[in-house]
Simulated assay, not measured.
Amino acid sequence: MNANEPFDKAMLLKVARHKMPFGKYSGRAIILLPEEYLLWFVNNDGFPAGELGQLMALALEIQIAGLEKIIWPLMDKKEQ
Rank of each mutant, 00 (worst) to 15 (best):
residue 1 M to H: 13
residue 78 K to I: 06
residue 56 M to E: 03
residue 17 R to I: 12
residue 63 Q to D: 12
residue 62 I to A: 07
residue 70 I to Y: 10
residue 21 P to I: 09
residue 77 K to W: 05
residue 15 V to S: 02
residue 20 M to S: 04
residue 79 E to F: 14
residue 65 A to D: 05
residue 75 M to H: 09
residue 50 G to E: 11
residue 76 D to S: 02
residue 78 K to C: 01
residue 66 G to N: 10
residue 51 E to N: 07
residue 4 N to F: 08
residue 63 Q to V: 06
residue 47 F to T: 14
residue 61 E to K: 14
residue 18 H to D: 10
residue 35 E to R: 04
residue 46 G to L: 08
residue 75 M to I: 03
residue 23 G to T: 11
residue 72 W to N: 12
residue 8 D to H: 06
residue 17 R to W: 03
residue 46 G to T: 12
residue 61 E to Q: 06
residue 69 K to L: 02
residue 80 Q to F: 07
residue 25 Y to C: 02
residue 79 E to G: 00
residue 33 L to K: 01
residue 37 Y to L: 00
residue 75 M to C: 14
residue 6 P to N: 00
residue 6 P to L: 10
residue 51 E to S: 06
residue 80 Q to H: 05
residue 35 E to K: 14
residue 16 A to W: 09
residue 40 W to L: 05
residue 47 F to K: 05
residue 71 I to N: 11
residue 73 P to H: 04
residue 48 P to Q: 08
residue 43 N to L: 00
residue 75 M to D: 00
residue 5 E to Y: 14
residue 46 G to F: 12
residue 13 L to M: 10
residue 74 L to H: 01
residue 4 N to R: 08
residue 2 N to E: 06
residue 43 N to F: 04
residue 72 W to H: 13
residue 41 F to G: 00
residue 22 F to P: 02
residue 50 G to C: 07
residue 62 I to L: 15
residue 76 D to Q: 00
residue 30 I to T: 05
residue 23 G to F: 03
residue 57 A to P: 03
residue 78 K to F: 01
residue 2 N to G: 00
residue 13 L to Y: 14
